[in-house]
Simulated scan of single mutants.
Amino acid sequence: MNPQPTTLSHSTSYRVIYGDTDTMGVVYHANYLRWFEIGRTELFRHLGLPYREIEARGLMLPVSEVKCKYLTPARYDDLIVIEAILNTGFRAGMQFDYTITSQDGAVIHTTGYTRHAFINGKGKVVRPPAFIRDLIKGNMQD
């Protein structure tokens, strides 16, 4: 498998707050999905296309599938890194792959992906629009 071009990935740092955890100080499992959203939103922003602009063009990207593999729990006050990678091999919509690690990269907390369909304002599934295809092509490295 070929590695993804670095311009189609982005890392975001985040400090685990008390509200992210359960009574044991361990991150509640659903928060990893929220962090996936943070990762892909910041990746879009990094590529020069804030998600708000996609919606302004009449499109939405609802999640159609999620996989989240929990490996090592994150805890209150940990500084984590959310890496989001746009998987350019997925053609039917968009797929983002994620790795959530400790700040130093020594601990992998979670890996996973989300898949998204493009839908228009009427809720109909549509093909990825030209402006998204152009954005991806313009950010690919050889």
Rank of each mutant, 00 (worst) to 15 (best):
G89S: 12
F131S: 09
A117D: 03
N139I: 11
Y113H: 08
V126T: 10
Y76T: 04
A117H: 07
G39W: 05
V107W: 06
M94G: 01
L43H: 06
D22G: 04
D20P: 05
K124Q: 06
H29T: 13
N31T: 05
D77I: 12
V66L: 13
E83A: 05
L59E: 02
I38F: 04
F96K: 02
H46E: 14
S64H: 05
A130M: 08
Y18I: 14
Y32P: 01
E55M: 14
F44W: 10
P73M: 14
G123S: 12
I54S: 04
E53F: 01
L135Y: 03
R52H: 07
L43Q: 04
G19F: 11
F36K: 03
H109L: 04
T101S: 15
V81Q: 15
F96S: 04
D97L: 00
E53Y: 01
C68D: 13
A130E: 13
E53S: 09
D104R: 12
G25S: 11
R57N: 06
A30H: 14
R115C: 10
S11L: 08
F131T: 06
T101M: 09
T7Q: 14
T99D: 07
L59P: 01
P5K: 11
G112P: 02
Y51S: 03
D20H: 13
T114P: 00
L8F: 15
Q4T: 13
A106D: 13
M1N: 13
H109A: 01
L86W: 09
M1S: 15
Y113I: 06
L43Y: 08
T88P: 01
G121N: 13
P62Q: 04
Y14R: 15
M24N: 10
L47G: 10
D134A: 14
T12W: 12
R127H: 10
T101H: 11
A56S: 13
V126W: 07
N31R: 11
T72L: 12
E53V: 03
N2Q: 11
I136Y: 03
R115A: 04
P62H: 04
G58A: 07
V126H: 07
P73N: 15
F131A: 11
S13T: 15
K69H: 12
L79V: 15
T88Y: 04
E53P: 01
P73T: 14
T99G: 09
R40M: 11
A84Q: 00
G105L: 05
D97P: 00
F90G: 00
Y14A: 07
V107Q: 10
E53C: 06
M24E: 12
A74L: 03
I119E: 04
H10G: 04
L59M: 08
D97M: 02
K124S: 05
V126K: 08
N139Q: 13
A30K: 11
K137H: 08
I54W: 03
G19R: 13
P5Q: 13
G93W: 00
I132R: 03
R75Q: 07
S13K: 15
D77Y: 07
L59V: 04
P129R: 05
T12F: 12
L49H: 03
D142W: 05
P73V: 14
I85G: 00
